[in-house]
Lab assay of single mutants.
Amino acid sequence: MRSPRTRGRSGRPLSLLLALLCALRAKVCGASGQFELEILSMQNVNGELQNGNCCGGARNPGDRKCTRDECDTYFKVCLKEYQSRVTAGGPCSFGSGSTPVIGGNTFNLKASRGNDRNRIVLPFSFAWPRSYTLLVEAWDSSNDTVQPDSIIEKASHSGMINPSRQWQTLKQNTGVAHFEYQIRVTCDDYYYGFGCNKFCRPRDDFFGHYACDQNGNKTCMEGWMGPECNRAICRQGCSPKHGSCKLPGDCRCQYGWQGLYCDKCIPHPGCVHGICNEPWQCLCETNWGGQLCDKDLNYCGTHQPCLNGGTCSNTGPDKYQCSCPEGYSGPNCEIA
């Protein structure tokens, strides 16, 4: 077999650049994923090309098998939009790539799955459409700058595939050579959905506090709520009108309100015997008056200043008058 000629994957630097851009600016990249293909086995019993010639040398006159050299087999892949009637021409609109030389006439790579040499990765940054057309071609490398490479066999497949970690196996069982391969579509990290176009990256910072479920939905951490999980859940009972919080379990009062639940107004400074319904009010309790509710309107009842059976009459805020019984006098009937 001729010395292998290595063929790198098509578009790999571009895919790395796209992945970097997506990581830095995830909101700009609407989708991100990759179409993967792995060659599993190849069977070319006679070492022939599609045109019937030998990959190298002439045929044995007896059994008609190619004798001089085995094929240097590598694969090309073209991925494009779905076609009900597949045409070989036209651009590979979803991507293209190739393997290096991975074997001779016949080989089996099932035991070495995950080997990069027999895998082609086609990254995409558009919403995966699920339906596709795939062209797979086996080629013989001439290892010659003058002699062109020659095609051994080709296969085409049109179908639908959803993103999954599971592989789907396909076979080419007609023509001079048979080969088996597997395909799958996977979303990149933080991308979800059938189109790999739903973005969700767990975070716990100013912009949100959430994890992501298997469908890419945000699940808020304990103590947080809202579409972006950036609204803290305040202390139970915290007034929704007069209290708020920036951290879970907190209850910060608005100006003019106080209390554990921010449901108590702050009265006017200096208010003595008054209450409030709104901040800075001083609504006097019964029998109290004045701007600060510090004037006693029922001095008689509060202090009972009249002595010796005198009768007390309220005459104004903090004022009274005693009517003394016979034989007593003085402001409080204290003089006998």
Rank of each mutant, 00 (worst) to 15 (best):
T6M: 15
I161T: 08
F75L: 04
T145N: 05
I102N: 02
S141F: 12
N332I: 13
Y192D: 07
G159V: 12
E81D: 11
N277H: 03
R2H: 14
N60S: 07
S112I: 10
T174K: 04
Q50P: 02
S10A: 01
I275L: 07
C187Y: 02
N143Y: 05
H178P: 08
D204Y: 11
T87R: 00
S323Y: 04
R85G: 15
C262R: 01
C251S: 10
L18I: 15
L20Q: 02
S93N: 07
C253Y: 02
K76R: 15
D263H: 06
G290D: 10
N215D: 04
A232D: 02
S112C: 04
L17M: 12
C265R: 02
L134S: 00
A127D: 01
G249V: 05
P279T: 03
K110Q: 15
R231I: 06
C245R: 09
N298D: 07
S244C: 04
P123A: 03
F35I: 10
F107Y: 05
N197S: 02
A155D: 08
D318E: 11
L247V: 14
F94S: 05
L260P: 05
Q43P: 01
G301R: 02
C22G: 02
V176I: 09
S239C: 09
I183M: 05
K264N: 06
T302I: 01
E70A: 13
M221T: 06
C229F: 00
L24M: 08
T315R: 11
P13H: 14
R119P: 03
N314Y: 14
G159C: 07
G256S: 01
G30A: 00
P317A: 13
E70D: 14
Q258K: 04
I335V: 11
T311I: 09
L49P: 06
Q214H: 10
Q236P: 12
Q304E: 11
G95S: 01
M225V: 12
G289D: 03
C200G: 03
Q168H: 12
D63H: 13
C234S: 05
H209D: 02
Y190H: 10
I233N: 04
L283I: 06
Y191D: 01
E285K: 00
P325L: 14
S150R: 05
Y74H: 11
N118S: 05
S158A: 08
A23P: 00
R12C: 14
S239G: 12
Q236L: 07
C196F: 00
Q43L: 09
P61S: 14
C55Y: 01
P123R: 08
I39S: 01
Y210N: 05
F179S: 01
R130S: 08
E326G: 10
D213Y: 02
P317R: 08
D204A: 13
K198R: 06
D296H: 04
V28G: 10
N51H: 03
A211T: 06
D72A: 15
N105K: 04
G259D: 07
F107V: 08
G11R: 06
A232G: 13
P317H: 08
G52R: 06
L109R: 03
P305T: 05
Q321E: 04
S10Y: 15
D205G: 08
K218R: 14
C253G: 05
Q147L: 08
P202T: 07
L297F: 05
F179C: 03
P227H: 04
P267T: 06
L292R: 09
Y82N: 05
C322W: 01
G56R: 02
N60H: 15
G195C: 11
V77L: 13
Y328C: 04
S244F: 06
Q147K: 06
N287S: 11
L135F: 09
P325T: 10
M160I: 10
R113C: 06
R117L: 10
S125N: 02
E36Q: 01
T311P: 07
G310R: 07
P202S: 10
K198M: 14
F179L: 12
T67P: 12
H303Y: 14
S84F: 08
S329P: 08
V77M: 03
H268D: 06
I233T: 04
N118I: 09
P61R: 15
H157Q: 06
K295R: 14
L40V: 01
D263Y: 04
E48V: 14
S141T: 03
D144A: 05
D296V: 02
K246E: 14
D213N: 05
G290S: 03
N332T: 06
C322R: 00
A138S: 02
N143D: 13
E36G: 00
S158L: 12
C200F: 05
K27M: 12
E36K: 02
E81A: 14
D189H: 07
E48D: 08
G89E: 05
A58S: 10
Q34L: 09
Q168K: 03
P279A: 14
L16P: 13
L79P: 02
T87M: 13
N162Y: 08
R231T: 06
N230T: 07
N173Y: 09
S142I: 05
L135P: 02
Y328F: 15
Q291L: 05
R201H: 10
E153K: 07
C333R: 03
G195R: 09
L20V: 01
P248L: 04
A138P: 00
G56A: 03
A58T: 10
N287K: 00
V146D: 07
T311N: 01
S156A: 14
E228D: 11
E38D: 07
C276R: 04
K27N: 09
D69A: 15
D250H: 02
S329A: 10
W139R: 08
N118H: 13
V176L: 11
P4L: 14
D189Y: 09
Y190F: 09
Y132H: 09
C187F: 02
E228K: 07
G47R: 04
